[in-house]
């Protein structure tokens, strides 16, 4: 198991986390550090505060508090002692760590001409631990195949936050890129995949190299605005499939339309309630017309994912 992220924490916090029962440790999703307040963890969908003796509690007053010194130390460690190399990250409010994990930051914003320039007095940290689930896309894949073009259909994955959209998206990219999809015993040959990874979540790139397995034929435009990135990739990398995370703005839809006209398949995710109707009225307004051929809604369950697949007229194809 990959617990590399532990090394970013100062000694005391690390030893507290290591005292957790193994099941809790392996199920960790978030570690939240707020200066002068109790240390919080989020494991298996439940939140707890850590106690001095290594136990957990739901009562904040019993939790271990972290101080200014520890915030300093943590910031120093996650920036490799060089906050000045992370100006762009500080503008966005998160830092991608080795292994694709993300450290969200909060503090006091410093403005320049009305825009956030960076954050200082950083006192809140939220480590979101990224977990790669290879094979997460296996049950969904058969419903997304385009048998004529030996490709995938235009697909939109819709779900609320923290339900596994990005995990599914990442595994779809890997499967298609490495040729582990399609019908027949041999499957179909791998395709050129282009990921536009605005928030460095899909591939978890460090210095341009992905931390996750996203397949051998995959190109990644890291930290790039989606609409621009889609156009750049179409022009420069001749992809068969474009993969983007969290579309939702007018210009994203415009770029998607361009991609569709260029004959490139699109797999995207969007936020949504994920119940009766896959698309929220807001998204429907933006996407206008029939852009996508398949919709997948996700919900996290005991066994992993529970998902539904709909066709272009929102008719359900599968309930799992």
């Amino acid at each position: 198991m990959n617990e590399q992220w532990l090394s970013v924490f100062p000694e005391r916090i690390r030893s507290l986390l290591l005292k957790l029962p193994p099941l809790m440790l392996s199920g960790l999703e978030e570690v939240r550090i707020r200066e002068e307040r109790p240390l919080e963890i989020n494991t298996g969908g439940q939140f707890y505060f850590l106690k001095e003796d290594g136990g957990v509690t739901v009562h904040p007053e019993q939790g271990v508090r972290t101080g200014r010194e520890e915030s300093h130390r943590l910031l120093d460690l996650i920036t490799n002692h060089s906050v000045y190399t992370m100006e762009e990250e500080l503008r966005k409010g998160f830092i991608t760590l080795p292994g694709g994990h993300r450290m969200g930051l909060s503090g006091r914003a410093v403005l320049s001409r009305g825009k956030v320039e960076h954050i200082r007095d950083i006192s809140g940290f939220n480590l979101r631990i990224a977990r790669e689930v290879k094979g997460a896309s296996v049950p969904v894949l058969p419903y997304l195949l385009d048998n004529r073009g030996k490709n995938l259909l235009h697909t939109l994955i819709v779900a609320p936050p923290q339900q596994g959209k990005t995990t599914l998206l990442r595994d779809l990219a890997r499967a298609v890129s490495s040729g582990q999809f399609g019908t027949g015993r041999e499957g179909w040959p791998g395709l050129k995949v282009a990921i536009i990874d605005e928030r460095s979540e899909i591939a978890g790139c460090r210095r341009g190299v992905p931390s996750f397995d996203v397949g051998p034929r995959t190109d990644i435009m890291d930290g790039c605005p989606k609409a621009e990135g889609i156009m750049m990739m179409i022009r420069s990398m001749s992809p068969d499939i474009i993969v983007v995370d969290e579309i939702g703005r007018q210009e994203d839809a415009e770029a998607l339309r361009q991609a569709l006209h260029a004959g490139v398949r699109v797999i995207a995710t969007a936020h949504g309630a994920g119940d009766a109707k896959p698309l929220s009225p807001l998204l429907e307004g933006i996407l206008g017309g029939k852009l996508f051929q398949r919709f997948v809604t996700l919900r996290r369950s005991e066994q992993g994912f529970a998902f539904k697949v709909y066709d272009e007229d929102y008719k359900p194809l599968l309930q799992h």
Partner: peptide, 9 residues
């Protein structure tokens, strides 16, 4: 050293 943005450094 190392704790602020470039201009400040």
């Amino acid at each position: 050293l190392g704790t602020s943005d470039r201009a400040n450094q």
